[in-house]
Amino acid sequence: MALKLLYQKTSPNLFAVALRILKNRELAEDCLQSAYIKIWKYAGRYDAGKARPMTWMNTIVRNQALDMLRRQKPQEISDDEALAQVADDARGQFDHVALARDSEDVHRCLAELSDQQRACIELAYFDGLSHQEMSDQLDYPLGSVKTWIRRGLMRLRTCLTGI
């Protein structure tokens, strides 16, 4: 069965994406399940000429996970402790990125980003934070956050496209 083969080949990577975004095994399992059912349903819309298969599937998982994350958010906001936790996580993000930099197999182009640039891009990509939320949680001015992201993205593009 085609879907089983697809699942066997790709589920560890897709599960990693769901876990990174949701930070909760049970939710990540639900997310993965819904994502594969979507992949199955929407396979007809997949266009091999436009996207690599892993990118296409990662996008489906990420959108699913971020949707679930957004549905979780109101509870967190009503709970001061949980909010403080999110803020801690955000500040810890710089350390996390600095640690990742030490690992040898980090992609060359990611290694070219500054810690702040990569941390902010990841906070948007994996944690669904807005510019303002990042600024609040990292305790840096909104302008700095925007500049880090803008310059980080440009550096990434230059490196990946070899311009």
């Binding site: 990577n13 399992e29 990742a100 990434l156």
Partner: peptide, 13 residues
């Protein structure tokens, strides 16, 4: 931006 996903360590569900 998919390189951010590629960096994640695979996890078996």
């Amino acid at each position: 931006l998919n390189i951010l996903n590629d960096e994640l360590k695979p996890q078996t569900p």
